[in-house]
């Protein structure tokens, strides 16, 4: 079996733990993960989260997901070898000015995101921390790539404390925000995040940007109305204390908030941003929505 440096060469550092490298005439991106970086795990072998994430990535084969091609070990480190994305792929796709030149491109990219989410959910994989920073786009070829490492989780094996509140609050769903770090993610949360991204594409700014859970919930309810037992059965038992609800607010007219959007788009957006997770549209249904006719 070839060692790391026998198999790959021409290392070029991109950031502290990320390298570009080569094998034959093909380039790859290599990411270093230390097995020993958590002290409490030092006596329990390879950390569970590394095992789970790598085994998830290894089974994924989708054009819109950055592909994990190889895993190498060298001492206390793992080297994850991903497909290389050239300069045409730019990270944080919503900051790409060309995104806003062609309205059809937004629809194309939204479709690719939802198609990817549906693919993952069919395999019982959650994204959990989907946000624009994790998404790269090539506007020439109109191909979008989602970088999953560090974010993907499976449905079925919850651990008490997955992680601290890593990641931006702006894309968290109300049912997650209500639980203050008691993180019980599920598929509707991913769909909510896509809805926020959809809104952000349209408005050129994050839909919700409050710095705390409470402020974020207030922004959400300002736009979508305060939930009631009628609009969200079971909400009073979830939110714990009525203080989180704030004073009752009526939903705004989405058509006035998003004047650039046609009726099909408004319908899809409202279904992705449905407050009740059980009523929220699934990714599988969303990709079949009339809004994507012709994509």
């Amino acid at each position: 079996m070839l060692t790391l440096r026998e198999k790959y060469y021409d290392f070029d550092q991109i950031s502290s733990k990320v390298f570009k490298c080569r094998r034959d005439d093909q380039f790859f991106t290599m990411k270093i993960v230390s097995i020993l970086n958590e002290e409490n795990q030092a006596n329990n072998g390879v950390p569970y989260w590394i095992i789970r994430e790598i085994s998830i990535l290894k089974e994924l084969d989708h054009i819109n997901i950055v592909r994990l091609i190889d895993v190498m070990t060298d001492g206390p480190d793992l080297f994850l070898v991903f497909e290389y994305l050239d300069n045409e792929f730019q990270a944080d796709f919503l900051k790409n000015p060309k995104m806003f030149m062609y309205p059809q491109m937004k629809k194309e990219f939204l479709y690719q995101i939802l198609n990817t989410v549906a693919y993952l959910h069919a395999r019982k994989i959650l994204l959990r921390d989907l946000r624009p920073e994790n998404i790269l786009v090539n506007v020439r070829t109109q191909v979008l790539k989602i970088a999953l490492f560090g974010a993907a989780r499976t449905f079925e094996a919850p651990l008490e404390a997955y992680s601290s509140s890593v990641g931006c609050l702006s894309y968290r769903s109300p049912e997650v925000l209500f639980q203050f770090g008691c993180e019980k993610y599920s598929t509707p949360n991913d769909v909510w995040a896509v809805g926020c991204i959809f809104g952000e594409m349209l408005l050129h700014r994050p839909l919700f940007s409050g710095p705390s859970d409470v402020e974020l919930l207030d922004e959400i309810f300002t736009l979508l109305g305060t939930p009631t037992e009628e609009t969200w059965p079971g909400v009073t038992s979830i939110c714990g204390t009525c203080a989180l609800m704030g004073p009752p607010q009526q939903p705004k007219d989405l058509a006035k908030e998003f004047p650039m959007l046609n009726p099909d788009g408004l319908d899809l957006l409202s279904k992705m941003l449905c407050l009740c997770p059980n009523y929220r549209i699934s990714a599988e249904d969303a990709v079949k929505h009339p809004y994507f006719k012709g994509v």
Partner: peptide, 14 residues
């Protein structure tokens, strides 16, 4: 150990 790390909420020490 690997199976427990893949599936269980609480993984005993090795």
């Amino acid at each position: 150990s690997l199976a427990a790390k893949m599936e269980e909420s609480k993984v005993p020490l090795l």
